[in-house]
Design a protein around this nucleic acid. Structure first.
Lengths: 338, 338
DNA sequence: AACGTTGAATACAACGATGTATAGATGAGC
DNA sequence: GCTCATCTATACATCGTTGTATTCAACGTT
């Protein structure tokens, strides 16, 4: 019943060679006679030997594991991203360990400070609540790539989408369909909520450009970016007396929540109210009406993040922090009359 | 530029004590004078020392990591499950590494055969394409808990929902609303598709119980369980001449896809066609109409799986394989006129 | 005063793998 | 026939940590 852990030693004994020779076979070292090699391979198969990664990693100082830290896995945007990151990492022989921060500052600090130190070789991090100070205070020197707009001056690589431009483009599109009272759902009070600030900025830029007044009552604040927040915010908009004729939601979940409220109350979308989101999650493509949205190139985000992280792990930290810009696209669908 | 890896040795030198004493402090060993302890703690902080997990794991023979192997992370059901498993594991001090099998038999075989051997202490596995033979051939002795109906006689623990009873209940509910032509979407040809078979069985049982004929043309087969498959299957149902007045979809994604097709073609739900799903993912609660569905207690699934796995890891493999049944609930919502 | 008991700290070996140095075997070249 | 180079395989040290055995001092007991 005890664990008969099998190691190089056991294989070596069975094959009648030294431990190092077995190691050499396992690692594909060239100078091994084919006779010895096949004898060793037979022994490996017979004992069902698997290298012990802890030991290998201890010796080599690397684990081959990178962490992906996201707020929540069941937010579809992050789920889709996670899948792509895992695939991209796999192609490079890396294993991904996913950490959920729950968007809590405390958990994000832990991650940044490297509580997984020595377990991971690198970190892809999508922070929500972390302040620039937190990040500046980071002691851990594990290579890290941040996802999200570059707001920190620290020496960290970023993979970003131009949130301001994208939000502006979405809002302009709403205006182009003839809407005059364009609301926004997704503003946040938290100073660390950078994404929110940038998308809000884009929204205001667009309003200014087309000469529409900025009306504070049309800007709805939310605590988080879930469907329920969008639904409640939409209800507030409808109850405030002057209903909007278009809403730009800062992500698709907010938009889907808002859509639910609108349909529930008998409003026609896009007839009465046009709706645009951000992220292009699959849900939006199957909602009725289908959801107009900003589609960041998630595939590119994942690939660039992994590539950049791999480069950083190889080169060490001396290299300059890079900012990698990833393209996006406005997907016009039924919710804005597309 | 080199990495100045700091280990117990360095802390010990700085604090003027032996390596083991530092280790004792780190591990909270009792018999250390508070004077020594604080000296060591100061040194630890000064050097920003982090224990090397590879070394610790090598020594202890455990890694504290368990794997969760699911088909796809961006299937909401698995994303929600993943979040809950990660949380449950965390409470026990375990870290979760997520593997995506892509529902490919090859990848699932790899997982079952323990290609993560020595990296993980245990495995929670939700197989889709694996055959009983594959599982019987499993050599690796890493503790494993399977999610999904118990179809294998092998010595593996299972956490299951009674798929037959649940599917039957959903179908009976559709019949109880007066529907006569109740279709099913989600049958699969693959012999390994156990979930599909069980839900189909429940569907037929319900039809028999209420005296409705089983019509093969009303049973739609799909390749996978994504929205697109549901949408296509619904289209086939509508095009076959005799449209159904109710559809039981074997998961919520299929139902959401079907819903999209129905609304797109101008059918009223639930007026013309009632719709029920399975899984109770959040999307369904915000769709319009909201989706009637079977809600498995995911929280219980996650907790039971982690608990059972932890027990198995502690006790070794001698204990009997257990089957743990988790409750479900029929959530009646708008799509069936709730 | 001699004793055992307990507390505090230590030295050493071991976990399983790999890098380095090296020994012995084989062959090439003169 | 001898040296030198190359190939094959080995012994040993090492990565950072913790379990075991041990040392040494201080204490209370008889």
């Amino acid at each position: 019943m005890e664990k008969p852990r099998v190691g190089l030693k056991d294989v070596a004994r069975l094959a009648g060679v030294s431990v190092k020779t077995v190691s050499n076979v396992v690692n594909g070292y060239v100078h091994v006679t084919s006779a010895t090699r096949s004898r060793v391979e037979a022994a490996i198969k017979e004992l069902n030997y698997r290298p012990n990664l802890s030991a290998r990693n201890l010796r080599q100082g690397r684990t081959g594991i990178i962490a992906l830290a996201v707020p929540e896995l069941d937010i579809p945007y992050f789920a889709e991203l996670a899948r792509l990151v895992v695939s991209a990492a796999e192609e490079r022989g890396l294993t991904v360990l996913i950490d959920q921060t729950g968007a809590s500052r405390e958990r994000e600090q832990l991650v940044a400070e490297g509580f997984r130190a020595h377990l991971i070789d690198g970190l892809i991090f999508s922070p929500l609540a972390l302040t620039p100070e937190d990040l500046a205070a980071r002691m851990d020197d594990t290579p890290m790539v941040l996802l999200g707009e570059r707001v920190y001056d620290g020496p960290a690589d970023h993979v970003v989408v131009d949130n301001v431009a994208a939000a502006k483009e979405a809002t302009l599109h709403l205006a182009a369909t003839g809407r005059r009272r364009i609301a926004a759902i997704g503003a946040q009070d938290d100073v660390a909520a950078e994404t929110s600030r940038l998308r809000l900025a884009g929204y205001f830029e667009a309003l200014a450009e087309v000469g529409l007044p900025a009306d504070d009552r049309l800007v709805q604040h939310v605590d988080t970016y879930h469907r329920a927040d969008g639904a409640r915010a939409m209800a507030r908009l409808l109850d405030c007396g002057q209903a909007p004729d278009a809403v730009f939601c800062f992500n698709d979940l907010l938009a889907l929540g808002a859509l639910r409220t609108l349909l529930e109350r008998g409003h026609d979308v896009p007839g009465d109210v046009a709706l645009a989101g951000f992220d292009d999650i699959e849900d939006g493509r199957y909602a009725t009406p289908t959801l107009t949205t900003i589609s960041p190139d998630k595939q590119a985000i994942a690939r660039q993040a992994v590539d950049q992280l791999a480069a950083r792990m190889a080169k060490g930290s001396q290299a300059e922090a890079r900012e990698i810009r990833v393209p996006y696209e406005l997907m016009i669908r039924e919710s804005t009359g597309g």
